[in-house]
């Protein structure tokens, strides 16, 4: 009967108060940007693909959250993203925007890379410079293909240009230098072959030497690989022909320009093979292409970092999966 002294209203009041305080506390802790809707200013970005972005996806500058995506709309056949940026964060007009991924499987967010201009975006303005960053999935497959191609090419080269062939080639060159014969026959018989070989060789060696070597190029360079293979095969043919001594080599020597061209080409190949020999079998050195090598290395590092980053990232996708198993 003692507890009757405190009426039910008081007890209910206590519990309700605890409840309201709990709710208030939790809302305060998580609701940092809950009130952002009306604050800040809005800028626009048009993307080809807004896949993975959500309203409320974060906007970052240098890894610091400066706002949230407020809306995603279809504009023509592109995605118009409205970004609500906190007041006080000034974004130069020449800034760039990129859609990035947090972690390997993680959330998409928009990174703004500030420009250096002194004029700043105002509400309603647009960032026109969009950097497309391939996502990790693409990079993975690209690198994979590239690496495979490199490997194949290398073993092909190695297989084809063995000691035997090198000697043959050398011998052929010696022969060319020494022997002068009926070049016209050679030309008429092998004209197409030679022209193709020469252009191919030139193109290939130039490409390799110029070393445009980005990962994308590399993938494209299936042709390079095939061409190189062609060249070598043709070369083998020729040297075989020469060795068989069809007596046409004299003619070859007579034609100065053709001779020079051939010499150039062969020199290029020699350089290439030398480079290959010196190289310790790394992909980059195969092609004498440092930048390509570095790019690949960078990409690899990125992937590695990404994999390490898994530990720290907050990919909702993981959460989603786990929720799926929980409930």
């Amino acid at each position: 009967m003692d507890r009757k002294k405190i009426s039910s209203e008081v007890w209910v009041g206590v519990v309700v108060l605890i409840g309201i305080l709990s709710l208030f506390y939790m809302s305060m802790r998580i609701g940092k940007f809950g009130t952002l809707h009306r604050q800040g200013y809005e800028i626009k970005v048009t993307l080809d693909n807004a896949n993975g972005l959500d309203p409320r996806s974060p906007i970052q500058i240098a890894g610091v959250e400066v706002g949230k995506v407020s809306a995603i709309k279809l504009d023509g056949y592109k995605a118009l993203i409205l970004l609500r940026v906190k007041d006080g964060v000034k974004i130069p007009v020449d800034s760039k925007a990129a859609v990035k991924t947090q972690g390997v499987l993680g959330d998409k967010y928009i990174e703004i890379i500030p420009g250096v201009g002194q004029t700043y975006l105002a509400g309603g303005d647009r960032i026109n410079d969009i950097i497309t960053v391939p996502d990790f999935g693409e990079i993975f497959t690209q690198v994979n293909v590239a690496a495979k191609n490199f490997g194949d090419t290398m073993s092909e080269f190695k297989g084809i240009i063995g000691e035997q062939e090198k000697i043959s080639i050398k011998k052929s060159i010696d022969n060319i230098q020494v022997v002068s014969g009926d070049f016209k026959n050679l030309v008429s018989a092998n004209k197409n072959n030679i022209t193709r070989i020469v252009t191919n060789m030139e193109a290939i060696s130039k490409d390799i030497e110029a070393g445009k070597g980005t990962i994308g190029k590399l993938v494209k360079d299936d042709t390079l690989y095939n061409d190189a293979k062609d060249v070598v095969a043709s070369l083998k043919n020729i040297s075989g022909d020469i060795e068989q001594g069809k007596g046409t080599l004299g003619k070859l020597a007579k034609d100065e320009t053709l001779y020079d061209e051939a010499k150039d080409a062969i020199g290029n190949i020699k350089e290439l093979t030398d480079g290959m020999k010196k190289g310790e079998g790394t992909l980059g050195k195969l092609a004498k292409d440092d930048s390509l090598y570095k790019e690949t290395e960078k990409a690899m590092k990125k992937i590695q970092k990404g994999a390490e980053g898994l530990q720290e990232m907050t990919p909702i996708t993981i959460l989603g999966t786990i929720f799926g198993t929980f409930f």
Binding site: V15, V16, I18, G19
Partner: peptide, 8 residues
């Protein structure tokens, strides 16, 4: 009310 307390 009970639920929010339980949540926290």
């Amino acid at each position: 009310v009970l639920t929010i307390i339980s949540d926290l």
